[in-house]
Every structure is written in structure tokens, then in C-alpha cells.
Design a protein around this nucleic acid. Structure first.
Length: 349
DNA sequence: AACGGAACCAACCGCTGTTCA
DNA sequence: GTGAACAGCGGTTGGTTCCGT
């Protein structure tokens, strides 16, 4: 192996193709077909290497290439296929007639990838990412000084870590762009304090000292300082200060000292009312494939080159678009998938 | 109008897998 | 069995265009 690049020979032209070169290449292939790319340049009187000719033909000159912007359906298909196949651009292109792998790859990197990131979705795993949501920047806290009420809240919310779906959804909804302005939607206003508290509870739950409760951890100043993503424990107040919440908004859920975990189904109901979300049970959320998950939902492919099967914990919520805005339509396109019905990808599994 | 940064995309690079002498 | 030739793939580059200041 380790063969020298075919364009290293002197005298071969590189860079953009001229119209004359294109015409020569097209005329030759029309007459002789796609044959030996190595001998083609010489036979077609082109000062190019065969590899360059092949790329030019397959990516640009081929008559069946569809040019122009990607349609919404094409974009959705790319996202769905990428969630299963990963960066297998040629495999994705094979299922999008008229589109080349290079074109899809470019479109992914310049459009889709950025949009997913903006939505708080990891473009590699297709899973919403809490760590991409910079809550501290939203709230601009000066420091975190937990009050006794905060600690009580944390104690009550610690079991929320058992609701990863809830956390992901809240994160996604909060990361969503609002339709007309930078002002958060009412749903976002309600979700934000919930997510903050749940996120804190999850962090505590994921890496607690052996015998420390969540609240105990926050009693340690050094621990509090080291917790990533910690924000002021009263986001409602902070939101109010930042003019993100109307002054008459009232008491936000989660800041009642008598907070109970039955807020969780209430939040699920709220989210469901907002976007027809369907929840998997918290008990089975990380493994359950029965709901809208592997085979019929978003998968989380490995970024490794081989075997893009669902190895990581999959995203386990999905949505049906109905009375939702542009973001929600996008999200629904991402999450409401029935790939097994549409595509035969078994050869890549 | 001029400039600079961002966005876009065609083309290149380097690697892997396959074929064949 | 070996290695060169080749096709194909994914990642990256760099030139061009767009857009805001």
C-alpha cells in the first residue's frame, strides 16, 4: 500500500475545471462510457489525472445529478439516514437520487450540523445534549449561594435523574429558537427552572459521594464551586431580573418549599399538550425499544467507522407535529421516525 | 465604496478495500 | 502469497461569494 497520489506526475493540471475540459470529458464519456479512469485523460486529451476526472464526472457532470437547494423532504431523509448510518455519505447518497455524497456531505457540514447544534442536538449521536445548553449564560449568575429552600428543593428533585427523557426534552425545548424574537416562549419560561433543578439533581445523582445526599453536597462550598453548570438556585428571580418573565408571572413550579415529585407527570402533561410528545417510562427509558426508539425512532449511532448500530443509550422520546411552530416541526421531523418502514438499512447493521 | 468575516462548495488529499498479474 | 494498480470513500482545504459594518 502507500501508493503515490496519481496527480503527482508533472504536467497534470489541478484546480477548478474549465468549460472546455468539462466538454471534453462529457463528450468522451458519452462516446465511450465510463471505463478505465486511468487511461481516460490521455484518450480524452485532458491534462488531468484519472482521479480528478472521475470526481468531476461523479460530482458535477453526471447527467442525472439534481442541482439546486435541498428540499425539506431530502433534508429530513438525510437526518434520518445519518442517525443510522453516520458519516456514510455514499450510503446516504445512494438513497437520495440525484444527490452526490460530496454534495450531501457539504450540505450536512454547512447547514444541518449547525442547525442541530443550535437546537442542542448532538449531530454525531442525534441525542439532545444537556451539556450543550449553557444555562449559566442564559441566567448570568454571579455566584451560587444555595439557600435552605434550594437544598430542600434539591432533595426533592434528586429522583428526577431517573427521568432522562424529561431532561432531554426540556433541554431541547429550551434550546429551540423562538419564532419571532429572542424572548422565550411561555413553555420555555416554565421549563427553564425545571430543567435547572433537574439538571442539578441529575449531576448530584450521577457523581455523589458515597454517603452524601444532594443537599449535603451543596452544603460544601468547595463542592458547589466545582459543580459544572451550576447556576443560581432561583432562576425565576433571575429571569425576572433579566426581564425574561413577566412581572405578574407568579410563582413558578419548583420553587414551592412543599415541592413534591408529582410535578413530574404534570410537566410531562404540559410538554405533551405543547407538542404531543410521547414518553417512555422512566424505568425503561434507557433500554426500552418498544416506544419510538430503535427501528422506529432516532438512534444514536456510534461515530466509529465500523458498525453503526445503536450502541449508546438511544433517544427515547418522539413527537408528532401538530400545533407546533417551525422548531417543533423540525424536531418532529427528527424524532417521529419510522425508518424500518421506509428504509432497508439492514445491510448496514 | 471598501473592507472583513462568514458561509458555501468544488476539488484535493490520503487512506482503505478490491482486483489481478 | 505478494504487491502494484485501481476505485471509492470520508475528511479537509482553499477559492469564491455573500453579507454586515
Amino acid at each position: 500500500m502507500g501508493r503515490a497520489p496519481c496527480c503527482d506526475r508533472t504536467g497534470l493540471k489541478k484546480g477548478p475545471w474549465t468549460q472546455e475540459e468539462d466538454e471534453k470529458l462529457v463528450a468522451y464519456i458519452k462516446k465511450h462510457g465510463q471505463g478505465n479512469w486511468r487511461t481516460l485523460p490521455k484518450n480524452a486529451d485532458l491534462e488531468r489525472c484519472g482521479k480528478s476526472c472521475r470526481l468531476r464526472w461523479t460530482n458535477y457532470l453526471r447527467p442525472d445529478i439534481k442541482r439546486g437547494r435541498f428540499s425539506f423532504e431530502e433534508e429530513e431523509t438525510i437526518i434520518q439516514l445519518h442517525s443510522i448510518l453516520g458519516n456514510k455519505w455514499s450510503a446516504i447518497a445512494a438513497r437520495l437520487p440525484g444527490r452526490t455524497d460530496n454534495e450531501i456531505k457539504n450540505y450536512w457540514n454547512t447547514h444541518i450540523r449547525k442547525r442541530l447544534l443550535r437546537m442542542g442536538i448532538d449531530p454525531v449521536t442525534h441525542a439532545p445534549r444537556l451539556d450543550l445548553l449553557d444555562l449559566s449564560s442564559l441566567l448570568k449568575p454571579a455566584a451560587y449561594y444555595p439557600t435552605q429552600a434550594d437544598l430542600d428543593t434539591l432533595r426533592a428533585l434528586e429522583p428526577l435523574a431517573n427521568y432522562p427523557d424529561l431532561l432531554r426534552l426540556a433541554s431541547t425545548l429550551l434550546a429551540a429558537p423562538t419564532t419571532t424574537s429572542s424572548q422565550p416562549t411561555t413553555e420555555q419560561q416554565m421549563l427553564l427552572p425545571w430543567l435547572i433543578q433537574a439538571q442539578m439533581a441529575q449531576q448530584v445523582s450521577q457523581a455523589p459521594p458515597q454517603h452524601a445526599t444532594a443537599a449535603d453536597m451543596f452544603l460544601q462550598p468547595s463542592s458547589a464551586c466545582q459543580m459544572p453548570g451550576l447556576v443560581h438556585a432561583n432562576p425565576a428571580q433571575q429571569l425576572h431580573q433579566d426581564h425574561m418573565v413577566p412581572s405578574d408571572y407568579g410563582q413558578l413550579p419548583g420553587y414551592d418549599n412543599q415541592l413534591e415529585l408529582d410535578y413530574v407527570p404534570a410537566l410531562m402533561q404540559m410538554a405533551s399538550d405543547t407538542s404531543n410528545l410521547q414518553w417512555s417510562s422512566p424505568v425503561t427509558s434507557s433500554n426500552n425499544n418498544n416506544n419510538c426508539n430503535v427501528g422506529s425512532g432516532v438512534s444514536t449511532p456510534s461515530s466509529s467507522p465500523a458498525g453503526r448500530v445503536n450502541s449508546a443509550s438511544p433517544t427515547t422520546f418522539c413527537a408528532n407535529a401538530s400545533n407546533i411552530d417551525a422548531f417543533s416541526a423540525d424536531a418532529a421531523g427528527l424524532f417521529d421516525m419510522h425508518l424500518s418502514d421506509l428504509l432497508d438499512v439492514s445491510d448496514y447493521m
